[in-house]
Design a protein around this nucleic acid. Structure first.
Length: 203
DNA sequence: TTTCTGATGGCCT
DNA sequence: GGCCATCAGAAAG
């Protein structure tokens, strides 16, 4: 993947990433997934973004050049992975929410023994990160470098007719922005739970 | 099948 | 000290 394709707009970058492959070296072997669900995040103008309140030690990668891995720890037990977008100095990233395994299924199942169906192996951002073995040490890795332990491989753009969009998952802020994108028909897209995302007020 | 809840830790105010 | 870009297993229908 060329870095320039991610450096323009986060929404364009998010759609561009659909169908592309992320490949990672793990102790069990190389694992590759085809991205089918992503979410775009921006900077000071995006209240749902980690970078909304400016640059910190954690979110520094979001402010760097496009094409680097932003890995963070959530809920005390999971990692999630983004790919940074936009030019150096401008905050932006695309969260990798779900993918389909393209590499050896036996290797993938060995890494995530609890997944009963292959479609569940990388369904959900923390599952995807777990399958690919992402941890703190991967934060900042250049995924456009063929020599990196994590590589982003370009694929022909997805047919626009197959791209769906909707509100981002699990974030209360900016619920009106349809900045989640997925490939229609994929079994690996994380399940949409109506009514759980939009707080309708309490009592 | 869908819905609910416990586990668990770092970041930011 | 509260809030999270979550998951897996259990419970209920």
């Amino acid at each position: 993947m060329d870095r320039d394709e991610l450096a323009g707009d986060v929404l364009v970058a998010a759609v561009r990433l659909l169908g592309c492959t992320v490949e990672a070296d793990t102790p069990e072997g190389t694992v590759a997934v085809r991205l089918v669900e992503v979410e775009a995040y921006r900077g000071a103008d995006d209240p749902a973004s980690h970078s909304f309140r400016g640059r910190t030690a954690r979110n520094g990668v979001m402010f760097g050049p496009a094409g680097h891995l932003y890995v963070y720890f959530v809920y005390g037990m999971h990692f999630c992975a983004n790919i940074s977008c936009l030019e150096d100095g401008e905050a932006g990233a695309v969260l990798l929410r779900a993918g389909e395994v393209e590499s050896d299924l036996a290797v993938a199942h060995a890494r995530r023994p609890t997944a009963r169906r292959s479609a569940d192996l990388a369904r959900g951002p923390a599952r995807l990160a777990s399958l690919l073995g992402f941890g703190r040490e991967h934060n900042g890795v250049d995924v456009t470098d063929p020599g990196s332990p994590v590589r982003l491989l370009a694929a022909p753009p997805i047919d626009p007719a197959l791209v769906r969009s909707g509100p981002r998952v699990g974030v209360a802020a900016a619920h009106d922005l349809p900045w989640r994108f997925w490939v229609a028909g994929s079994a690996a897209v994380s399940q949409y739970r109506p009514g759980r995302n939009a707080p309708v007020g309490r009592l």
